[in-house]
Nucleic acid binder design. Structure first.
Lengths: 145, 145
DNA sequence: GTCAATTCGTTGCAGGTGCAACCAGTGTAC
DNA sequence: GTACACTGGTTGCACCTGCAACGAATTGAC
């Protein structure tokens, strides 16, 4: 049966959980997934180059470039050229960006916790452990082929 | 840190794992995710109405309708009107569809197992348990609000 | 110095996805 | 019977995503 197939269960569960979060930052604040990730990172850091942004958000350069454009238009982040390498940008979060982030973050956390709190402590620990192991295993297969 | 944020870790891990599977059925066989799910279901069943297809694949009616169109064009499934309710379709898998499915299924299984086999038995059990619990918790929150 | 190779950002495009509107068939009240 | 609400399928649209091509800046060989 399809519903017993591991890749299917993982995808469906992840999508359903993700939808709860997206409802918050997308529907209520007009932020896309990529914008949300960038803002998350920049709100907790002084400045960051475009390179580091990509590495730390699992986004490729196209996604970083476009999401950053939108965030700049909205006044949530800013950037300036990096003098030592003029191919790169130096990004930073604006005051307004930090404000918005704090607000969204609180709501997303609340939603996320609402789900996790419905699980037993043992189930949460199992999820943590299994997810971390799956992450490692997936990366090793992806790299090794 | 973003990389410690649970919703982020879940999304990234799931996407990375999913990519390994998509590489098989998409890149090598030209099947989209929705088509793959429909074919999976229909290959293991005699016939199924459009309604049941939607329920059993976590796809909405639009996705079922479009994915079915493409699978029919490729000759992998067929459909005829359901006489007792002419709004619905009765879908079934063609012989060619079963052939293709068996081939893809073997490769996807192989990939999926390649990942899971790199995890310890305890980690796999933890993942199973945690994922099932997360699924239940997510559904209960999604329904209850 | 110059030229080629590399790295990074941006743009364009094709395909996928979610959403809302619309159309057709069914059931229900009267 | 007719009018109404309801349910399922299809279509159109706006957005997002992944991929390949291009251009600008840098590095390294010579």
């Amino acid at each position: 049966m399809l519903k017993d197939f591991f890749p299917y269960r993982l995808a469906v569960t992840s999508a359903a959980f993700s939808r709860l979060m997206v409802d918050v930052y997308q529907r209520r604040f007009g932020l896309g997934r990529d914008e949300w990730r960038l803002l998350y990172l920049l709100a907790s850091v002084e400045v960051e180059t475009s390179l580091e942004l990509g590495r730390n958000t699992s986004l490729d350069k196209v996604q970083v470039s476009r999401a950053a454009d939108r965030l700049i238009k909205k006044g949530l982040i800013a950037r300036k050229p990096l003098e030592t390498d003029r191919r790169l940008w130096l990004y930073s979060c604006t005051a307004k960006g930090r404000e918005v982030f704090a607000e969204v973050r609180a709501l997303v956390d609340q939603r996320s916790e609402a789900v996790l709190q419905r699980m037993s402590r043992e189930d949460r620990l199992a999820l943590e452990r299994g997810l971390a192991a799956l992450h490692r295993a997936t990366e090793s297969v992806a790299d090794g082929s």
